[in-house]
């Protein structure tokens, strides 16, 4: 790896000043520190989710925590079909794909190829907007079925689970009377708060990507001589993808 330390600092101790002990620029280091603090924010939400969920496992008094994949079993343009986990997997795929185009933009930036950076940034922005649209659709469907921030009508009864298990993947499914009752209140609230918080991060990521794209088109980085700003925006974008990995695992799979 290239060493950027000028000769005067070469034999100085690492922490003596005049050079970055982390060998990255100030902006990039601060982006990492910000992402660490953001990781704490999301962790506290996930910790809250885990504690709430585990306190509603098996109890005579409270209703059991609903099986999430059975609730998010819809797919656009396939109305009424029982397709658990499929739509959210497609959303995951979209986010992974936009992560790759982002990292390709960073790589193009390393070669100072303005044109390629522009192309890949456009793909990344399209991916981000597609993900947000999917999430909006999922929220719409969930609210339409009766989910609210302050209550939960998704307490699935024994009859409901029998009904769910009687249909196979891709069959027609409609909730029947007595399938659902009032469930643990934090279920819908935590879903809205955590996916909403993540969605807001995706939204701000898209805004950052648009700003960086405009700067690229206007030749700001070309004049500056390097495309490190793409790298910083990329760090944020990958972090959003990283958070989604855990939201996907804890909210849908488990």
């Amino acid at each position: 790896m290239a060493n950027h330390t000028p000769a005067a600092f070469e034999n100085q101790p690492m922490w003596a000043g005049g050079r970055s002990p982390f060998n990255v620029s100030y902006g990039k280091l601060m982006m990492w520190i910000f992402l660490l603090s953001d990781a704490f924010t999301f962790s506290s939400l996930l910790v809250q989710y885990g504690a709430q969920r585990f306190s509603n496992v098996e109890s005579a008094v409270t209703t059991v925590w609903p099986d999430p994949a059975s609730i998010f079993n819809h797919f656009p343009f396939m109305h009424g079909l029982h397709l658990p986990l499929l739509f959210v997997s497609v959303m995951t795929f979209i986010l992974i794909l936009s992560s790759v185009t982002m990292v390709l933009a960073v790589e193009a930036g390393h070669r100072n190829s303005k044109k390629e950076v522009q192309t890949y940034m456009i793909y990344t922005i399209i991916g981000g907007v597609a993900f947000l649209s999917c999430q909006a659709w999922e929220w719409y469907t969930f609210i339409h079925e009766g989910a609210r921030l302050y209550g939960n009508t998704f307490g699935i009864t024994e009859q409901g689970y029998e009904h769910l298990h009687s249909v196979s993947f891709g069959d027609h499914f409609e909730w029947a009377l007595g399938d659902r009752t009032d469930g643990p209140v934090p279920f819908a609230a935590l879903f809205f708060i955590v996916t909403g918080f993540h969605g807001f991060h995706v939204f701000s990521g898209v805004v950052i990507n648009v700003v960086v794209y405009i700067m690229t088109v206007r030749g700001v980085f070309e004049r500056r001589g390097h495309y490190e700003m793409i790298e910083k925006a990329g760090l944020y974008w990958h972090f959003v993808d990283l958070v989604w990995v855990f939201v996907f695992t804890f909210f849908y799979l488990i």
Partner: peptide, 29 residues
């Protein structure tokens, strides 16, 4: 270019190629 300076930092622009990135993509998928 390539020299470290606290005020006008020029990062190294070294490309590791896209091979590892695509491999990571297929792995994640």
């Amino acid at each position: 270019p390539g020299e470290y300076d606290a005020i006008n930092y020029i990062p190294h622009t070294e490309s590791h190629g896209t091979k590892e990135l695509w491999r990571t993509f297929w792995l994640l998928l």
